[in-house]
């Protein structure tokens, strides 16, 4: 084990002159702090319970689902475990649509301002550490935590599934579940980035928390309502316009909705977890003609969600870049 650790320390990425780089010390401290904090424990319990609930409902209905002859996805048992519902509980990925932001917000809302309030920021900055390392460590440590949490949850599910059903997992399913986890982590990362940004902007942790929750509520609840109202007002009457125009209009509405990160997330997860989903917009009859009702290969599904994935990454990076810009120029005295 020691030899292994030593070989790790060879890489100059992690160490400098045999010592771990200050950045990784910061990350380690952040992770330790999060794990010991009550808020992470509460969120962990919440997510584990949701996961357990959603999966056990899915397990109960698995037999019926797989037996459906019409369903083209029936062979993907493990994907079914993640997506099947009995109407009582939504599936896990839908849960994560609103638990994810909560996770991201709670891990990041007091990242910088609490340090400033406690007077620890000046102290850390007086050590030989680059200023951006602190910001980056906040972001990276939370992402590592979220990634590890989701990864271990899905591995647990796969393991449990194997024990219960005895069906061997296919490589396609592994790829899809892994990319689902990466997607979720990026989605949480976006909210994390936003909350860190607001924690730099606002001096009080409660203000930044409230503001981030406000943004989240706006995108999950009000944004759809606003778009729908606008759509109703501006929608052309059905018999006055051609079919193509109507189609364009629908496309426009859908694209507007996609400005919300949760919509991007929903689009992307649905496509990844349900191989039979071929398109995210309206499809004309001509396009459908001749299509064989079979699941898409992983590569094709990935191609469909690529724009969504890019959008999420871009939004995350934008938040991070902005917080970087603000933090580097910031006077650190309280």
């Amino acid at each position: 084990m020691k030899a292994f650790m030593n070989s790790l320390e060879w890489s100059s990425f992690l160490t400098v002159e045999g010592q771990p780089k200050p950045f990784w010390i910061l990350v380690r401290k952040e992770i330790a702090g999060h794990i010991r904090s009550w808020r992470f424990v509460i969120l962990l319990v919440l997510i584990v319970l949701t996961f357990w609930g959603a999966t056990s409902v899915a397990m109960g209905n698995l037999r019926e689902v797989v037996a459906k002859t019409k369903d083209v996805d029936k062979l993907f048992v493990y994907l079914k475990m993640l997506t099947t519902t009995a109407g009582t509980l939504p599936p896990f990925h839908v849960f994560l649509n609103f638990l994810g932001p909560l996770l991201g917000i709670s891990l990041g809302f007091d990242a910088i301002n609490s340090e400033q309030q406690n007077g620890t920021l000046t102290r850390i900055m007086a050590q030989p550490v680059y200023r951006d390392n602190l910001l980056l460590s906040k972001f990276v440590s939370s992402l590592i935590l979220v990634g590890a949490l989701l990864f271990s949850l899905s591995l647990l599910m796969i393991g449990g599934g194997m024990v219960i059903t005895g069906v061997l997992i296919e490589i396609e399913e592994v790829l899809r579940i892994m990319s689902f986890i990466i997607l979720c982590t990026i989605y949480v990362g976006f909210w994390l980035g936003l909350s860190i940004l607001l924690s730099i902007v606002f001096k009080q942790a409660s203000t930044s928390a409230l503001t981030t929750i406000g943004v989240w509520l706006f995108f999950t609840v009000f944004y759809q309502i606003v778009i729908n109202i606008a759509a109703k007002t501006f929608a052309p009457a059905a018999n006055e316009v051609s079919q193509m125009e109507m189609l364009h209009f629908n496309e426009l509405i859908l694209n507007l909705l996609r400005l919300a990160p949760s919509q991007l997330y929903t689009d992307a997860t649905t496509t990844l977890l349900m191989p039979s989903v071929r398109s995210l917009g309206p499809v004309t009859m001509e396009q459908m003609a001749g299509a064989i009702p079979s699941p898409l290969p992983f590569r094709e599904s990935l191609m469909i969600v690529w724009p969504q994935l890019c959008g999420l990454i871009a939004a995350t990076l934008m938040c991070f870049a902005l917080s970087y810009y603000l933090f580097m120029r910031r006077e650190i005295r309280t």
Partner: peptide
């Protein structure tokens, strides 16, 4: 610094 703070 004048107001020393630590990780509580």
């Amino acid at each position: 610094p004048d107001s020393v703070g630590f990780y509580d």
